[in-house]
């Protein structure tokens, strides 16, 4: 080619839409993965500072199997094995992948446990099982519940050992997540009292299935030991393991034992839930918490029975709560 001849190879090109889209998608994917890696690294650093050899996330992951069992002793019948409550497993949700909730109905208000897809036996004798759906990270155990009732205007929740957090669950798609990231991820701005857990399906799976990826975001806020707020039926409340508990773990602690030890902060704690109704009246319940090993049956279903087979076996570590009268 002559030097002055038009050179097609030097002309500017227009990037095709399909190429631009793939580039954006890939860069976003890389960024998301890096955020997860960084978060894990930060978590590991915190743990190192607390002289923990074992990373906290696995600890919490083990704790994810721990359950909170609430035994409601009502009508002044302390120690009753037949409390006047009922519990059902909600199987009518359209998206069972995400929702598997256990409910107790009260004449006044009810507590709904967040269980997700874990297999839990139907409750008996008034025991209610709250299950960490495997989302626990850092001190956020993933053991959550919500409060349901009519005409509730405010809720006041307190605990005398350990701490609490609240969580707003946002079921969304990858596209919305992009928008959230584009806004600078407003609740990941370094505020030590907020934390966001992003639950996604695997990236490898995403590559194979070209569907829009469903994402569940948990916007968590540390609430300390007591707080009151306007009632929102969509808000979940969870048990938060305070930082000072983590720092008490020694380097040699077994992973499972460490997770049990962390949950033990709630052993002997009193959880108080007070709801105020729109007419100004209020109703209060106090629950005494204690930790326990609960057996799983041959199918892996978590049962109400206490495990007596020692430290190894088919059990999950839980917390039993009884209403105080």
């Amino acid at each position: 080619m002559k030097k002055n001849e038009e050179n097609i190879f030097l002309e500017d090109i227009e990037m095709p839409r399909i190429v631009e889209e793939k580039i954006s998608e890939t860069l976003l994917k890389i960024k998301m993965e890096e955020i997860i890696v960084m978060r894990e690294k930060e978590s590991a650093d915190t743990k190192r500072k607390n002289k923990l050899k074992t990373p906290l996330k696995p600890l919490i992951a083990v704790a994810a199997c721990a359950i909170l069992v609430v035994t409601f002793l009502i009508n002044g019948n302390a120690g009753s094995k037949t409390p006047d409550v009922s519990m059902t497993t909600d199987t009518d949700k359209p998206d069972l992948q995400w929702e598997d909730e256990s409910k107790i109905s009260f004449p006044d208000f009810s507590i709904t446990a967040y269980a997700k897809e874990l297999d839990i036996a139907e409750p008996s004798e008034g025991n209610v099982i709250f299950v960490d759906a495997g989302i626990g990270e850092n001190g956020y155990t993933g053991i959550m519940f919500s409060i349901k009732g009519n005409e509730i205007s405010n809720v006041d929740i307190s605990i005398d050992k350990g701490e609490l957090y609240s969580a707003i669950i946002d079921d969304t798609t990858e596209e919305t997540l992009h928008d959230w990231m584009a806004q600078g991820m407003p609740d990941m701005d370094g505020d030590p009292n907020t934390y966001t857990i992003v639950e996604t399906d695997g990236l490898e799976q995403r590559e194979e299935e070209q569907d829009i990826r469903n994402i569940r975001i948990y916007h968590c806020t540390k609430r300390g030991t007591n707080f009151m707020e306007q009632y929102d039926s969509e808000t979940y409340y969870g048990f938060y393991i305070p930082d000072h508990i983590i720092s008490t773990m020694d380097d040699e602690t077994d992973l499972a034992v460490a997770s049990h030890n962390m949950l033990n902060i709630f052993d002997g704690a009193v959880l108080t839930v007070t709801v105020t109704y729109s007419d100004g009246s209020s109703f209060r319940k106090e629950y005494e918490l204690s930790t326990a090993k609960l057996a799983q049956d041959e199918n892996g279903t978590i049962t109400q029975e206490e495990w007596t087979g020692g430290d190894e076996g088919a059990f999950v570590y839980g917390i039993v709560a009884r209403e105080k009268k």
């Binding site: 399909i18 190429v19 793939k22 890939t26 860069l27």
Partner: peptide
């Protein structure tokens, strides 16, 4: 073609990263 080109660029970016 642009479609295959987009795939190749995507794969390349992931490998480079």
């Amino acid at each position: 073609n642009d479609e295959d080109t987009a795939d190749a660029i995507q794969d390349t970016m992931l490998t480079c990263w």
